[in-house]
């Protein structure tokens, strides 16, 4: 009962958070239009690049053209999620620390990590999320995957797991601003690493493959969910993804609680 009422409270808060965030952005129509156009150009660019590989007859780690598209679609979906939630929220942490407005967040009777992670939403990534989803299923169908309900459910779960991994690592990097104040470059590195998720992980040389699995878990972001949808995923990979997500999330949580003890609040 208590959990349910707590959950509804969070939903209401989220509704207010996102309602005001969208209303704020609608104040600047032109800016929104430009963001949308940039997103579409980006999407066209990556599709073109991928098609070049296959036109030249280069196979990416043994993936067919349709199967590779599932990975690219998963990347598009994740990139949309990044533009919608991760980027707008997590990049603000730096500003909050620099300007001391983190004070207001910490003084509210609400989980500060929840606030910092979900305070705002940007519609700029919506089209990518929608395109990514539709494209993923279409490409998987083209690749001859049977698309059973169980496979779809596991794919969505693994996508969520991948998103959580990305979120947690990003959040940890953003949290280090409490000590270093400027860590923007570090999060840029993470974003650049995500770009590696455009292509199936098998397309990379073994050294990079290890790096993208163990150090920067790029494999879990796109390749693992794509394999699940294509119906050829090994269970250990799925479990590893879920394990990595839980671990990273727990890490981000502990790290945040540790870090705010060192917050000095920008002086006024």
């Amino acid at each position: 009962m208590k959990i349910a009422s707590g959950f509804f409270r969070f939903l209401l808060i989220l509704r207010r958070f996102w309602g005001t965030a969208l209303a704020s952005q609608l104040e600047y129509q032109l800016n929104m239009l430009i963001e949308l156009l940039a997103m579409l150009a980006n999407l066209a660019g990556s599709l073109f690049l991928l098609s070049l590989f296959y036109r030249q007859g280069i196979s990416l780690g043994g993936w067919s053209w349709s199967a590779a598209q599932v990975v690219l679609a998963a990347y598009t979906l994740l990139n949309g999620l990044t533009a919608t939630l991760l980027q707008p929220n997590l990049s603000r942490i730096v500003t909050h620390v620099q300007q001391g407005s983190l004070d207001f967040v910490l003084l509210k009777p609400i989980d500060s990590q929840f606030w910092l992670s979900l305070r705002t939403i940007s519609p700029a990534g919506f089209p990518e999320i929608a395109t990514g989803l539709v494209w993923m299923f279409y490409a998987a169908h083209q690749a001859g995957a049977p698309l059973r309900v169980a496979a779809i459910a596991i794919t969505l779960l693994l996508l969520a797991s991948g998103a959580l991994i990305l979120y947690s690592l990003w959040f940890v990097l953003a949290t280090t601003t409490i000590w270093f104040v400027k860590t923007w470059n570090a999060t840029e590195v993470l974003r650049a690493a995500l770009v590696a998720g455009r292509y199936p992980i098998n397309a990379y040389p073994p050294a990079l493959r290890t790096l993208f699995t163990l150090v920067l878990p790029v494999a879990f972001l796109t390749t693992v969910p794509a394999e699940a949808l294509l119906g050829r995923l090994d269970w250990p990979w799925a479990l590893a993804s879920l394990g990595a997500a839980s671990g990273c999330l727990a890490l981000s949580r502990c790290f945040w609680l540790y870090a705010i003890r060192f917050y000095t609040s920008a002086s006024s």
Binding site: A23, S24, Y28, S101, S268
Partner: peptide
Amino acid sequence: MGQKQQLIWDL
């Protein structure tokens, strides 16, 4: 705080 504000600027 006189120097910091919590109100949403654009709304």
